[in-house]
Write a protein that binds this DNA or RNA. Structure first.
Lengths: 208, 208
DNA sequence: ACCATCTGGTGACCAGCGTCACCGGCTTAC
DNA sequence: GTAAGCCGGTGACGCTGGTCACCAGATGGT
């Protein structure tokens, strides 16, 4: 599918006039897995819409990270939007987890569109709400759940996203996403396995 | 000051036409300290603007709480907005910390205003950004800081809000706001005092 | 063949903090 | 005056999870 067509089909709900504006002023970008899109403290000049792929959003302090959420197609990065509109530095990091196709909207145009095409607010409000809810969930998990359930929740979410029950995933990666240490994850995974919730074999993880 | 006048002066940036709409369709409300405004799981039909006083927003699970942020005059409750616009149940609780004056906006009208008076989006986007930043800070604090610094940060924020260095605050309250136990707070406060960061005398706390 | 590097796996240790049980002091109600 | 409640304060104990040191197996490069 051509890029404009992908844009149109993915974001049809925005309406034709807005889509046209987005198409003329926006810019297409294709990035390989691992590309850093937003760094902490960085000022944002463009807001990305995700057309294809997955972008991972997380906080980082020194060498400790915490996964906040993923941005999937038809979604947008509200943190960029927030940082862009408010002219404030970003508080989070965003990295392409897979090869990802983006459509970049310049902040300057966005500021106009917010009043010119009120429909675009719908997109951002929806996104804000969703992210908000995810952050609250994260906070609750951090505060109320022990690592066991956090890891398990994380694994369930991963399988939901990938659409398959077998995950090819390193303990190290899980640890990083949850802001803990590799050995601790190993320990927890062992316990989950004993409880019959997962199964591990040659580096893959199977959810039961 | 009359209520409409207070509304106008506090939210002047919204523009005359919008203010008029808000004034005709909105409703004034005065609540005493301790009033619960939003409960977890509740569906929201009105979004409050705060004219005077302070509203406290927090998560609650069983008997454990965590303070998320305060809503002050000229601010609004984006969680209500989120819940109202998305027709989803609220994830948080909101309680008036002091006697508080509110202006209630019916969700139905708000949905129209979002496109009719794009200026109102400015308010909500600003609020969203601010809350977002606060949530991220909370997450970082939970993940990276130990109780010492969390308590200290909390106290500093409190004094900033009240505008005075002496706080009349129970250990029990601090514990509740930070999602921990009273004895633990007592312990931490003792340490902070030994470190010369605070001083405690007859139930009051002085920040140094 | 050999070494470097990645993986998961373990045991020991310790810090943070939640919990329990129990003070004594101060205030308020009756 | 006495009893009931709240307040901060303490010591003991145990669980969770972060850290360290170290192992063995798989993989891949030269």
């Amino acid at each position: 599918m051509s890029q404009p067509a992908l844009l149109r089909s993915t974001y049809a709900l925005l309406g034709e006039d807005l889509l046209q504006a987005i198409e003329t002023h926006g810019q297409y970008m294709d990035v390989p897995a691992g590309t850093t899109l937003v760094r902490e403290g960085q000022f944002v000049k463009v807001v990305p819409l995700v057309l294809h792929g997955t972008v991972k959003v997380f906080t980082k302090t020194e060498d400790k990270e915490l996964l906040l959420y993923y941005i999937r197609p038809s979604e947008s990065c509200v943190m960029s939007f927030a940082a862009g509109m408010g002219d404030e530095p970003s508080k989070i990091m965003a990295v392409a987890e897979e090869a990802t196709t983006l459509w970049l909207l310049p902040v300057a145009q966005l500021r106009q569109w917010v009043t010119e095409f009120p429909r675009i607010n719908l997109l951002f409000f929806t996104q804000y709400n969703q992210r908000y809810a995810e952050l609250i969930d994260t906070i609750n998990a951090l505060l109320f759940n022990r690592l066991d359930s956090r890891v398990y929740q994380y694994l369930k979410e991963k399988t939901r996203m990938k659409g398959e029950l077998v995950l090819d995933l390193r303990h190290r990666q899980i640890a990083q996403d949850l802001g803990t240490a590799r050995e601790v994850v190993t320990r927890v995974m062992k316990r989950l396995e004993q409880e019959g919730k997962i199964k591990q074999a040659d580096g893959k993880i199977l959810l039961l």
